[in-house]
Every structure is written in C-alpha cells, then in structure tokens.
Design a binder for these strands. Sequence first.
DNA 1: CTGGAGCGCTAAGCAGCTCACAAAATAAAA
DNA 2: TTTTATTTTGTGAGCTGCTTAGCGCTCCAG
Lengths: 243, 243
Amino acid sequence: MNMTNRSLEIVPGGTSNLADDAYHRIHRDIISCRLLPDSTVTEPMLMETYRIGKNSCRSALARLAHDNLIISRPRKGYRISPILLQDVEEIFTMRAELEPLAARLAVGKVNIESLKQLEAACRQRHKVTLPERIGIFMDANKLFHLEIAKASGNQRLFLTLSRLMNEMSRLVALGYNVQGTQPEIKHDHNAMIEAFIKEDSDKVESITKQHIHTFQKMTYEHLYSTLKSSKTILPLIDRRIFG
Amino acid sequence: MNMTNRSLEIVPGGTSNLADDAYHRIHRDIISCRLLPDSTVTEPMLMETYRIGKNSCRSALARLAHDNLIISRPRKGYRISPILLQDVEEIFTMRAELEPLAARLAVGKVNIESLKQLEAACRQRHKVTLPERIGIFMDANKLFHLEIAKASGNQRLFLTLSRLMNEMSRLVALGYNVQGTQPEIKHDHNAMIEAFIKEDSDKVESITKQHIHTFQKMTYEHLYSTLKSSKTILPLIDRRIFG
DNA sequence: CTGGAGCGCTAAGCAGCTCACAAAATAAAA
DNA sequence: TTTTATTTTGTGAGCTGCTTAGCGCTCCAG
C-alpha cells in the first residue's frame, strides 16, 4: 500500500481507549476532508493507516455510520458520505433555529473572557497554507459558537449544535480547500459579545439569528461561485441538484 | 443464568444485520424501560438474552453508548443511563423549538390521511395491561409527530426529533409503568390536523408550540406527583435533584 | 478486628478462522 | 467471436479463543 496519506496517521488522540481514539481520528479526517466525500475506504486500509486492530476499526466505523458520516456498503467497502446541497440548507435551517435559542439561554452564564479569546482566535492570521488557515479559522469559529451552546446548560442542545458545526466545517473545508480561495469572513461576533455583556436576551437572540443568516448567505454565494468555476468539486457534490 | 426477562428475547427485528438488529432490540428495550434506568448489564448477559455473539453485542453497545443511552464502565459492566429531571427540561426545550419549525416546513407536504390514521391510533383503547397500553400510545404519538417531521423534508430535523421522541417515550414509560396510573392524555392533534388542511403556516406553528407546552406541563405534573407518592421511582431518577 | 494477598469477574483488545456474497477474471461452449 | 458458465479474489459479517489489565470481593494471617 502506498503512503500518499501519511499525514493521516500518527496523532495520538486523547482518550485512553483505542476504539474511541480511532473514532475521533477518523472523524476528524472526514470533517476536515482529508478523507474526501464520496471516496471509498476499506477496513484493511484504515487498520494500517491508523494503526488499529480490526475490532477497534469496526467499532469506529459503526459509530461513524451511526452519525451518517460513512455508509457501509457490504463487500464493497465504506463510502465517505457525499455532501449534498440539501445538506447545506438543512444545517443552516437548524442552526438558525437552535443557535438563537442557545444564545438566549446562555445570557448571564457564558464566560465573556473565553468568548473574547475565541473571537481573537478567529481573527488571527497565521503564516500557514490556506487550507490550514481555513481549518484553524473553522475550529476557532466552532469553539466560539459551542462555548455559547455549552453555556446554555442544555446538554442535548450542545450536542446537536456540535454535530451541526462539524458538518459545517466539513462543508467549508471542502469548498475552500478545493477552490483554494480566501474565505471572506466578516463575523459580527463582537456584536454578540456586546449583547452578552449587556445581558440583553432579546438582542443576543436577534443578533445571533442575524449572524447565522449572514454566514449562510456568504456560504451559499461562495458555493455557487465555486460550483461554476471549478470542475473538481462537482463530482464531490451530488449531481442530482445541478445536473 | 435465570430467565426472568424472557420477554426480552426472541423478536426477530427487521434488518438483515445481526449487529444492527441487536442495536434496535436493545434500544427498544431501553426506551420502553424493560431495561431499567441506572441498572447494570454485562456483555455475557446481553449475549445470552438477545442470542447474539460478542461482536454484535459490542457493536450494538458502542452505538448505544454513542447516543448516551448506556455508559460503558470498564470492568464493571454497562450502566443503563439514568433519567435526570434535567433531561425532561432539555427534551421539552428542544421539542418546543424544533417541532413548530418542522410543522411549518411540513405545511402542504404532509399526508393528511396518514395523520388522521395516526391520530386515531393514539385514541384507541386496547384491552391490554396498562404498561402495554401506554407503550402503544407513546408509539402512536411518536409516529404522529415524526410523520410531520419527516414531511418537513429536513433529514437532520427528523433525526433530531426522533431522538427526542425516543427519550420522551422512555421518560413516560418509566413514570407511568412504575406508578401504574392511567395517563391523562388530552391531545390537540386534531387542531393541528385542521391547521394543516387549511395550510395556515402560522397557525400550524402556534398550535404545535401550544401542544408541546401542554404536554410538557402535563408531564411535569405527573412526574412530580409520582415522585411524591412513589418511592420506587426515586432511585431511578438522579438523586442530586431531589435529595 | 484488620489489612493485605490472591482470586474471580469484567471490558478491552488482538488474532485467526469461516461464511456469504459480489464482482472480476477466466474458462468453456455455441 | 460472442455468450455463458465457472473460478478466483476481495470484502464485510460474524464467531471463537486468547491475553491483558483493573476493580472488588473473600479469606486468611496477624
């Protein structure tokens, strides 16, 4: 087996559990599109790449299939779930509904200092290649939003938003990595922080909603322009929508 | 090993996959509280009860742990997740936010006839023992709400609400099964159906929101009275809240 | 009583094997 | 040459058996 994806392996992971470890590592590589949507992986391949046993591998794959990141195709390997345009719609619809809720619940509870730090991390410009920079931005952005979700005190809300943010990252990673353009990210995170400081629930809620919509519009525009200019991304997104 | 839970076994399940099968069967038994919250199960126990191999068992358990229905405790067995009062709060908060959204999206798309049938199934009174009747009602109720979620066309919304409805069922199953009272279920499903027929999005949304709140209030009242009168349920609900 | 050693139970994990199935490659027949 | 039948290969599904490590219990010595 060739070693084109050497970057995938190593990286020890965090927990003390091999199967759990494997899950998180593969999960991360799917989210970051190091494992490309619609591509196929096999058990032996993953076992070697991630240095895990068969059972750990299968356990991880079972969980990944459980949250629709891969699709088990008996005797054909596992398929990394493709990204459909419909997914973008779905993710934003849910974020637009849940994030304002989370924000409202988090008023008076969220740690303002943490938010400011995470906001700063979003703005930071590193001297790294573009794909990495986008990855770093999306991680910081994710943490910012999840800090609020966590502060809401609602565990289920937090977990649901975590899933959505992961899917968001994947989407963005695909779009920007393939096209290689600079993401135009204007975030009104500061306005949100202001509202949190004032503990104005209504304002927090409305600004959050506004923020999601802004980001949604931006993402849509980028995706459409990407789809027009690039032929590379087309096979990765479901064709039923664009023909 | 004794056979006190003979009712758990058999039942072939639907899919052609043993592990998947096992997952659904155990899942169902947790949801219906045939496997009591906060109790402990071990792999050998489940292997014998459900007639499955070690791998299928572990695969199923991994997935169940993944959606927080069980907790793996190395070298101690698996613990069926307890129900916390906080969970009730969380579930209803999310339902109150997502179901009106789903309902609005489902306007003009949902199959009215299916809804009517499912509503009828909710009202039906079978000549079976109370625990079973409650199970049947909750299943029908679940299907009613999920029919709407499905019609919304948003897969993620549907899946999220599925999870929430399952947790709801579990909660209700615990409360009513333990206490053995008749659930006071007044459902304004018909009002929802009316609004769907009129295709009045605003009305659909507001009635759905109202319905969730009504059900929430009812559930709270029942749970509190149960907690006061019964000592059986107390150990099953987390003590941190009630002391 | 008390404390530590040892035993048993458990999950975690690995290795190896069979089976079923599908697709591809090969062989056989028209 | 074309079509059909057969074999091979690759893969996931699944089981058994084994090793490792850690926790809790018992039981015996002091």
